[in-house]
Every structure is written in structure tokens, then in C-alpha cells.
Design a protein around this nucleic acid. Structure first.
Lengths: 195, 195
DNA sequence: ATAATAAGTTACCGAACGGTATCATCAAGG
DNA sequence: CCTTGATGATACCGTTCGGTAACTTATTAT
């Protein structure tokens, strides 16, 4: 069974991984399923045996992205001793990602922009994810003693999204520096000195 | 001549205006030229007589958007007496736009997200525009006495882009409030008290 | 009035789209 | 061995895509 399962997963995994990469680099709508299969070295039938539609494939990829963010967030905040330290660690890790030339924007945000209709499942999936990110930041802000933790969480989330969006015209290094300085300013203003 | 010109412009204008609306609400790639012509009550031939390609139509719309932003910026800043007042006026006007339920994001940012390839003309056009916006903000920041005007301009631009991106999950009212508070914090930290 | 120009009409092009059907292949498990 | 399940291969479906050709109809400036 494990062999068969590995075999099956191998096909689906290749497809999902290739699609993730192509969707990110070229755009989702700009990438056809045939190209995905060609790059994945698989056939269209393998794709449609696992995913009932292209939309389902998109949803699977975004869900995976969301899960990976959870791991990333947990890992990044684990080391810091205080809530404020965790917030600062998140900002620093984000800045590091921005400076990585491989990144050209937040995959979730890009996907959302390709489906502007608020009723579209993809649009809503991203909105829920972003709301959860803001919640995580707000929780840390509350723990760090912010007077208005939700507001600080939203402001941070806004700044982070803005950093992704600024990447094309600011460049990675400058976007990272701007995010660090901006977040630091917000922290100094909204968090108690002793935190 | 004016009559003929008006007639010609009328067709092209209808097409461009319909395309602008459809591209914004449905996405550029998701909207076909036939649909644009149907809504514009024009024919495909009229479109291709004025614009050599769909890409040219996109470029024309984005250029128009950029021009409209120039006017908007000039109008919004005209009333304020000081440079700092102009900056605050821009933020307030942006917040008002965010609260308008008709807006669902920055058209330029949405367009850029649909063409992730940094080499694509549309992507670059938006990048140049955003850089110019940051420059305008930096100029005001310098005039207002900021120690690091470019940094403040970039931070503001980042915050504004983030506000657009946050619209789907924060909603207009909360996005507007978050932007106002965030910008105010940046101002208090980066501008002298007497400005 | 007439020549010129803009716009509409209709039909078409090749290509790519998302998605499906049929059948062959091939590896592993009983 | 031989069945079973996953994968590959290939051809095909109807639709839509961006874009063009040929021709007719209005408007309008001289």
C-alpha cells in the first residue's frame, strides 16, 4: 500500500509543486493546465484524477501555502523570549524574505488580485487567511501589553502587505529596510517601554 | 473636424471606459475583448482601429489612471497650508476612498498582480507609477522637515498599498481607520512637532 | 453634392482554453 | 500468477481567446 500511495502522491505532488511555481511566476490565469502537466512531467488525466478542476488545484495550493505560513510563524516566534520579541522576530523574518530575490510578492495577495470578485472562493480563502494573520499578530500585541492590540495587529498586517506590494518598485533591500523601520516606529508608539 | 473627432473619440472612449470598469471588477485577463465591446456597445473592429492590441488598451487605461492620480493628488493637497497638512490631507482622502464600497483595491496594484513577470510592460508601468507616488510623498516629507524624507515617503507609500491590499479582509471602515492611525504614528515619529 | 473618414456588420482565422474518453502500461500485493 | 490501482498516451470535445478581412452604413467638412 505504501508503495502505491507513494506512487500516487508522487504524481499529484509533482503537479501541485509545478503548478505552485508556475502560478506564482506567471500568474494563475496566465498558466494553462497543459503547461502545468508538461512541467510536472505528468498528464492531464493525472491532474484531473486528483483534482476535479483547475479551481480545486488552486485551492489546494493556497491551503498548502496557509499551512506553511503557520509552520513558518511558529518557527520564527519560537526562539524569542517575550511577546514583543516574537513580534520583532516576525518582522525581521519577513524582511529577510523580502530581501530574497526569489520572492516577487505574497502568493496569497497575488492570487486574490487575480480573482477580484469578492464572492469567488479563492478571493475569500485569501481574505480568511489574511484575517487570521492579523489575529495572530493582535494576540502577540495583546500579550506584549498594547493598549489597542487589534489596531496594532491590523497596522502590522497592513504594513507587511504593503511591503509585499512595494517589492516591485522599491526592490527587496529597500522594502525590507522600510518595513523594519516602519514596524519599529509602530512598536515604539504602541507598546510599553518595558516589554 | 471637431464633430468627426468627437465621433471618433466617442467610440474609443466608450470602449476604454467600459474596459476600465470591467478590468477592475472582473480582472484584466478574465475579461475578453468581445465582452468589452458588447458592454461598450461597439464592435471589435472599432477597438482594434484605435488600439493595436489588448495590451495597448490596458496600457492606455493605466496611463489614464496615472494621470487621474496626478489630478487627485494636486486637488487634495491644494487646500492644505503646510507640507505636513498636505501629507495629512492625502492620508485623509485615501481613507475616504477606502471607505467607499465601490473600491475594492488599487487598480494599478491589481493590474500589476495579474502580470507578475517583472519584464512585462504592464508590470513595469505600475512600478514606475508607484515609485513616482513615493517620490511625491517624499518631497512633501522633505518640505515638512523630516530627517529622512525618502524613508518616510516609502513608509507612507507602503502603508497606503497595504491599506488597499487589506481592504478585502478588514473592510473599508476598518482599513481607513487603521491607515489614519498608522500614518499619524509615522508622522509623530518622523516629523518635527512644529510642522 | 461629394469625397473622406469613422463606425457598424458579419464572418472568419488559428490557437489555446478547461475538461473528458478510451485504451495501454506497469508496478506492487495477495 | 494475476489482479488491482495508479499512471501514461493520445485523441478529442465545445468554447473562448485575441485578432483580421471585406464590405456597408452613417456622418461630416469642404
Amino acid at each position: 500500500m505504501s508503495g502505491a500511495t507513494v506512487g500516487k502522491l508522487k504524481a499529484a505532488q509533482r503537479i501541485q509543486s509545478a503548478a505552485k511555481d508556475l502560478f506564482y511566476r506567471q500568474g494563475i490565469r496566465a498558466t494553462g493546465v497543459e503547461e502545468v502537466c508538461r512541467v510536472a512531467e505528468a498528464t492531464k488525466m493525472s491532474l484531473y484524477r486528483t483534482y476535479p478542476s483547475k479551481d480545486a488545484l488552486i485551492a489546494a495550493i493556497l491551503s498548502e501555502d496557509a499551512c506553511e505560513w503557520d509552520s513558518w510563524f511558529a518557527e520564527v516566534t519560537a526562539a524569542a523570549p517575550s511577546a514583543r520579541g516574537k513580534l520583532e522576530a516576525v518582522v525581521m523574518a519577513m524582511a529577510a524574505k523580502l530581501a530574497d530575490p526569489e520572492y516577487r510578492g505574497c502568493p496569497m495577495l497575488l492570487a486574490q488580485a487575480e480573482f477580484p470578485d469578492p464572492e469567488h472562493p479563492t478571493h475569500q480563502l485569501v481574505a480568511r487567511f489574511k484575517a487570521r494573520v492579523c489575529d495572530c499578530l493582535s494576540d502577540l500585541a495583546r500579550e506584549a501589553g498594547a493598549a489597542e492590540p487589534e489596531m496594532l495587529g491590523d497596522m502590522l498586517g497592513m504594513m507587511v502587505d504593503g511591503a509585499w506590494a512595494s517589492l516591485p518598485h522599491l526592490g527587496g533591500a529597500r522594502a525590507a529596510e522600510t518595513l523594519r523601520k516602519g514596524a519599529e516606529t509602530l512598536f515604539r508608539s504602541a507598546l510599553p517601554d518595558d516589554s
